[in-house]
Design a protein around this nucleic acid. Sequence first.
DNA 1: AATACTACGTCAATATCGCTGACGTAATTG
DNA 2: CAATTACGTCAGCGATATTGACGTAGTATT
Lengths: 166, 166
Amino acid sequence: MNSLPQGSRPNPLFLRDEEIRQGIELLFFAYRDFTSDADAVLARHGMGRAHHRAIHFIGRRPGMTVNELLSILRITKQSLSRVLSQLVTEGLVAQTQGTRDRRQRLLSLTDDGKELERQLSGLQRARVTRAYREAGAEAVAGFRAVLIGLIDETDRETVLATVDKD
Amino acid sequence: MNSLPQGSRPNPLFLRDEEIRQGIELLFFAYRDFTSDADAVLARHGMGRAHHRAIHFIGRRPGMTVNELLSILRITKQSLSRVLSQLVTEGLVAQTQGTRDRRQRLLSLTDDGKELERQLSGLQRARVTRAYREAGAEAVAGFRAVLIGLIDETDRETVLATVDKD
DNA sequence: AATACTACGTCAATATCGCTGACGTAATTG
DNA sequence: CAATTACGTCAGCGATATTGACGTAGTATT
């Protein structure tokens, strides 16, 4: 955009590469600030981002199994286990035995968990809302389209099914 | 989008919140896959993402000082120190004494460092290029506008100066 | 010239979050 | 009954981040 030397005849290949690199950096900076929002709240509760991610997805998909959560987060069960048992111990997440398959432990937020989720997502929602409002509806559509394109083709369907819940 | 129960008269407040939450999740998934690209290459060199970030920004702004890099990455000098001295030891990053202020150590990539940078960014550039091509020019403009809106207002100027170099 | 500040590096201790490997239990499936 | 699956857990490790304290060289101020 405003990176073009005025009046020059830019090499289209260079332009493309420069445009791409700018996108990569914007993604870095936006994500850096975006994730920083919840940290203060988390620190007060003695938790980290891993807890936030678990709380977020359990909140959005109550009744999800441990396996489903694992494949969304793309971490090992050993890693999740630490986080999850902490959340259960502190009364933020409840586990109920699966009905169809009694080996499963269906995950859901307790009232305390919902309250924390609301606190945690508050700042992030405010940030995204502000950015959406400033950029306008068309920009939002483009934003979404590019993000979807950035996701691995193999699990784009799965992700969209998760994002557009039911 | 397709999350609206067909034929219902959706509450605009609910819609807004749902739309925002979808954006938050798309950002998570896109960034998750986006950052996974370089890991294989990094692992072969016995390095992690911290090294990648340092290499990336040094590559884009040769001659930058340690302090500048610190404020971009938003980590402590102790954290950067480990990474940086590793990169210097392995001959990927060169430090030259500042001319204006001889306390400064200006950072730049060696030829080996440039080669690694090229390898590392290759997959990411390919991913972003694909997403841009699929989504189209208008979508890209929207993508950029929203990302800029997500960045902290306080350092939006700084970031844009960094992204649009010179 | 003495003082204060800055840029950078480093030592030490700590926490989070990810990993692998191994083992166990309960429930389901063939 | 045997194999597989869902989940948990113990043990150890590595990468990345943190805070706090200290040192050294160079710059700026008084």
